[in-house]
Design a protein around this nucleic acid. Structure first.
Lengths: 117, 117
DNA sequence: GGCAAGCTTAACCGAAAGGTTGAGAATGCC
DNA sequence: GGCATTCTCAACCTTTCGGTTAAGCTTGCC
C-alpha cells in the first residue's frame, strides 16, 4: 500500500511539507488548489499506509511524518541492485571514514534532498 | 510515474521475475491468472516508467529489467531519513564482512521478495 | 503458400481513484 | 448560549485502472 500511497503527486508533496514540521490539516491543505475534504482524504490514505500519523489535540488534528514506513518499500527496492547504484558513493565515503577513524561508530549522514517529478 | 508503476502487485511480481533473467512476454505472462493482453499492458506501463526495456528479436519480444529507474525514486525516499533507518543493519553486516574480509569488494545482496499491500 | 506462434490493438466493462459540494460533529472563544 | 473554526462523512460525478474478448499484424517454420 505504500507504493500506491506514493503514486499521487499531491501526497508526495504533502510528505515533503511534513518533512519540515508537523502540521495541522488546514495548513497542509492551504497551498493546494483543492478542497479541504480532498486533502483530508489524501491524509487518510497516507495514514493507512503508515506514512503519517495523526493526533488530535483540541480541535486541531496534527499530522506527523513517519518515515519508517518507507523502510519496507526501500528494502524491496534494494533487491533490484538499487543498493549498489545509489548508495555506493555515500557508503564509500562512510566506509572510508569508518576505516580511517575506527573510533567512530555513529555515522552522521544527511541525505536531505527534495525531488519533485 | 515510477511509484504508480510499482503500485500494482502484478507489476512488482513481474519485476521480481525479471530479476532472475530476461524473459519473453509469453513467459512473463505464464504464471499469472490473467490474459496475455493484460500482462502485455502491464509491461507497457513498466516500460513507460523506464523500469524495463523491451527488445524484439524475431517474433519474440524480450523484457529486460532496468533497475536504474528505481534510482530517482530511491533518492527521493532518502530525503526522508530512510537512508539511515533502512541501511544500518544491512550496512552493518556489509561493513562487518568488509572489515573481516578486506579482499571482498563486491557486495552480493539479494532481498528478492514479494509483498502484497 | 499456409499455418502456428507471439504479441499488440481496439472496444468494452466494472470498480476504484480523485475530485466536488453540502451537511454535521467536535471544540474553542466571546 | 451562540458562533466560528476544524475537520470528517456522505452522496455524487468523472476519469483512470485493470481486466476481458476478439481481431489483426508479424514472424518463423513446414
Amino acid at each position: 500500500m505504500v507504493f500506491a500511497a506514493l503514486s499521487d503527486p499531491t501526497r508526495r508533496a504533502i510528505l515533503s511539507m511534513l518533512l519540515e514540521d508537523d502540521m495541522a490539516v488546514t495548513d497542509v491543505a492551504e497551498p493546494f488548489e483543492m478542497s479541504l475534504a480532498a486533502v483530508s482524504k489524501h491524509l487518510v490514505i497516507l495514514a493507512n499506509a503508515g506514512l503519517i500519523t495523526q493526533e488530535k489535540r483540541g480541535r486541531v488534528k496534527w499530522c506527523k511524518l513517519e518515515p519508517d514506513a518507507l523502510r519496507e518499500a526501500s528494502i524491496w527496492m534494494q533487491g533490484f541492485g538499487q543498493f549498489e547504484a545509489v548508495n555506493l558513493d555515500a557508503f564509500e565515503r562512510f566506509l572510508a571514514s569508518e576505516l580511517s577513524d575506527p573510533g567512530l561508530s555513529d555515522p552522521e549522514d544527511d541525505g536531505s534532498d527534495d525531488e519533485e517529478e
